[in-house]
Amino acid sequence: MAQAILPPEFSGLPDDQPLVIELKTPWLAALLAWAVPGLGHLYQGRTGKGVLFFLCVLGTFLYGSYLGDGKVVYASMPGQDPWRWQYYCQAGVGLPALPAWIQRNRALGGKPPLWGGWMAPPAGTRTPWVDDSGKTSTQPDELAAWIVGMHPRHELGTVFTVIAGLLNLLVICDAYAGPLVLRPPAASARDPSDAERDAANASGKG
């Protein structure tokens, strides 16, 4: 069973003891962490962090989806302009972003979208749109109508969901290998002249 050991100065324990973290099966934890944010940590028994990741990452993703009326997470069709590169960041959040891929594949197969078009790619057809003053205009495609109609919530929703997906990559790394600790270089690994200077300073102060 894999373990990660936090050195005493980073463990946060009051008596300066190293902290041993049971990672169980790291690849399985990483897979679970990708599928549902925080699930990998719950599997490892790291409940507090699991709940924190679940609330923060999924909360950010769901709030972004809410801001964008459920239309900010979609995978674009081949050749669709603009290419929805943001989906590949959003997909970092795992299963919650998977319906967009299902909708894309249905659209590729010429099937109608499921779930009322939720997470379906926008149609490329011209779309009428009525503004607040009642004037009707024709937008070049459905995506343009979404952006105009929701401005600026479409952009904000996209940012929130993209950041949620990217944050989950950090969560996956944490589930796989434990917390990232950036230790200062040990005295023996540094330049010998630095070590000598430190020693001289210490003796001078003493």
Partner: peptide
């Protein structure tokens, strides 16, 4: 709030 908590939680283990 979200980014701070997640980034901090990937650096430490205890709350």
């Amino acid at each position: 709030v979200s980014v701070s908590l997640v980034c901090a939680a990937t650096r430490h283990e205890l709350m």
